[in-house]
Design a protein around this nucleic acid. Structure first.
Lengths: 330, 330
DNA sequence: ATGAAAGCGCTAACAG
DNA sequence: CTGTTAGCGCTTTCAT
């Protein structure tokens, strides 16, 4: 090569190694000349660390997911990690096979975003010493470390907001009840209504899909009167479908005839055409916490599972009548 | 382990290897018991193939990109490959450093989606024998293999459609002119107008961003009359911003006062709130071709670069006056 | 059909 | 500070 030993080359590429500046320079020169770069995979074999984080995600239709991927990727990159993507067939499928696949790649860590991890899988990760984090989901106190927003509290505050806005017949189109996020939002919403002794008019499962949410919306307004004057939808992505169905198909005005409130605050919610009032999940903070916890777990094994919750904030926009509007109308 | 040699284990996991059924069974049993799975990285070291494809992408704000990622990932997975994600700081930045990083991971192939590759980089990929494909971009006949839609022809047909619709003062808000896609759409649109001896009223650069497109829209309508009665926007993502600006800020009706036509056909374009008439890029076919070409190049080295173009199709929706509407108004 | 041995490209002790 | 040696977990000739 350039008349030096293999180890010197290695040291030239190891940040804190004891190597003279001239040696390092000599190596880099020769490397540039030959187009040489260290083989990360071979390095992984010996160090046992691949600098790859596996990300399991359901689909990208809901813009919350690509946003999360983008932020996670940037945050991880700062720390020298990259994301290997694994798409689950769908949100409901168990991720058994997929994560087994992931493990083969010797990922240093694993983020399950908006998908569930089977119990045997979680224990296998722990057995192999691969830190796993549930993002935007959780699986009980005994489950893997999780990072999410406070869905229960957020949904409860939506209920308070709607009641304060003078709404009488309040409906809910939930996310999939098979998901912790969907359940917590529904439960929180019911609790919030309870706080004011208001009954939930109707409740239907939107399954996090546009078509299911639209169908739920139709059925809510089809079944005999009285029609609701407010709908809380357990996710922005579904809320858009509800607004579309209301306005274009049913000829119902938003918010004059019915208020619609979402959950997530994806970018589209702020665009004027929807102007969706929604409970914002603090994505940045969730991402930071996820990456922080993950790297911590990679550094020092055997960190006990923790369950982080971040508070949501209500974004007041045009799709729901405000409390002030009430007096206005009276 | 289970009383067999290392090689036999290897063979048990190699599809076409000469191994007796009983041996294979014995190995799998022991493996299941021990929770053993082959180490993909170690395999890569010897086989020289990692089954990882690097994907470079700018950002996910424009929903075309996550859609592409999702389809690419699914298509690659069918063939046993996975995607390692690399986010470029922005669409305009050169990808030099990023792809160098990618190369370190010994990816089997490389897809640059909607970002440019510097020339030295492209040649380095070729030198290292790593197939690279430009997705939704191209860099001339001598550049790397590229897969895209026929942007020029598509934009030209948008011009014909607008002229046929009886529009008199036609404006264009282009994608970034530094991108082949942006240039081709602008050039094609100009050519299409030329075909009917119609002059382009105004043209502004939307730089593929919401804010730049909104600003371009404002300036087009601010500068002295006459205001355009049609705008072709070089990407759906920008078209939504234009429609928002028109309706919410400028109080201009779409399509009564001005027709808006986009390019891409992202899912949102079909939602009733925008109902965007747009030139559809055949994403599925582009993805199939990309993966097909990439795997072909991985199998047999030294495939000559090709440049695939797929035809677009106009999606007629509500944001632009139709040719029929013209008679109607007369 | 199976085992033994060599080596992929690198890092991590250990000498010097 | 630098070179030597061993070995990460696998696949692959080459024998048997």
């Amino acid at each position: 090569m350039a008349g030096v030993s293999q180890s010197s080359v290695s040291r030239a590429y190891t940040p804190g190694a004891s190597v003279s500046p001239q040696m390092a320079e000599k190596v880099r020169q020769a490397a540039d000349h030959l187009g040489y770069r260290p083989n990360v995979l071979a390095r992984s074999l010996i160090t046992g660390t691949s600098r790859i984080i596996g990300l399991v995600v359901g689909h990208f239709e809901n813009h919350f997911h690509p946003s999360a991927l983008e932020l996670l990727s940037r945050e991880l990159k700062k720390n020298g990690y990259h994301i290997l993507v694994f798409l689950a067939p769908n949100e409901e499928s168990d991720t058994e096979e997929i994560v087994a696949d992931l493990l083969d790649y010797q990922v240093d860590g694993l983020i399950a975003a908006s998908v569930a991890m089977t119990v045997p899988l979680a224990s296998r990760c722990r057995a192999e010493g691969i830190p796993a984090i549930l993002f935007n989901r959780h699986q009980g106190e005994d489950g893997p470390t999780s990072v999410a927003s406070d869905n229960f509290d957020g949904a409860r505050r939506v209920a308070h907001f709607l009641v304060a806005g003078g709404h009488q017949r309040i409906a809910h189109i939930s996310g999939w009840r098979g998901s912790s996020t969907g359940r917590e939002r529904e439960d929180g919403f019911r609790a919030g209504l309870q706080d004011f002794d208001v009954a939930l008019a109707t409740c239907a499962d939107g399954r996090y899909s546009r078509s299911a949410a639209a169908e739920a919306c139709r059925s809510i307004f089809a079944r005999g009167c009285p029609a609701p004057d407010a709908i809380f939808v357990g996710g922005d992505h579904m809320a858009f479908a509800v607004i579309d169905t209301l306005k274009s198909e049913l000829g119902i005005r938003v918010p004059e005839d019915v208020s619609v409130v979402g959950f997530d605050d994806v970018p589209l919610a702020a665009w004027p055409s929807y102007s969706l009032t929604t409970m914002r999940q603090p994505l940045e903070r969730m991402v930071e916490a996820t990456v922080g916890k993950l790297l911590e777990a990679i550094d020092q094994r055997n960190t006990p599972p923790v369950h982080l919750r971040f508070p949501c904030s209500l974004m007041l926009r045009g799709s729901a009548r405000l409390p002030e509007d009430r007096r206005h109308h009276e």
